[in-house]
Design a protein around this nucleic acid. Sequence first.
DNA 1: GCACCGATGTTCT
DNA 2: GAACATCGGTGCA
Length: 194
Amino acid sequence: MSTTTPDPWAPLPRDFYRRHPAEVAPELLNKLLVHDDGRAGRIVEVEAYAGAEDPAAHSFRGQTPRNATMFGEPGHLYVYFIYGLHWGSNAVCGEVGEGAGVLLRAIEPIAGLERMRALRPAARRDRDLANGPGKLSQAMGLTRAHDGADLVTGDRGVRIVTDGMPPPAEPRIGPRVGISKAIDFPWRWRTPLG
DNA sequence: GCACCGATGTTCT
DNA sequence: GAACATCGGTGCA
């Protein structure tokens, strides 16, 4: 074909992530988290976690086996286990060694809903499939096995792509939730209706 | 709709 | 031991 049809789901380039997480986070809104098996959701809520400057970040006290992925190449997935029950998923940001990331807090499911329902038996309504960091990870099947996955190349079946929808012009901004330090940082962003 | 609370295991003090 | 980037059930409005 000589006339080009833009890939409707174009991956975000590595350099998209190579910035401060508070700059990357609002731009991740309305992007798509997709799985090779057809599951996909639109990112509607995120939080930024910086490194040494952010007491609430897992990376604040330096690199450990648990948070090593955060200190690696941007554009990879950092998955952590929390409260003995749940997984949380982040996009690594900034430069190598910085320890920055964006916590993916909620997606609006747009494809592969049946698979998500199977993975989320506790969800009584589709709106509860992925409206929280643990629920999002469960609905997308993200666990320790995906820690370090490359979101740019999709080496483990998961990527973040764009369908051309821009981030919201006026996202809702507020403090991060579930933390006890740096509770005043306005580093949580949501789409206006999400 | 909202407030409270137990579950469960890894990490760090 | 304590804290933890949470969730789902229960009780009440």
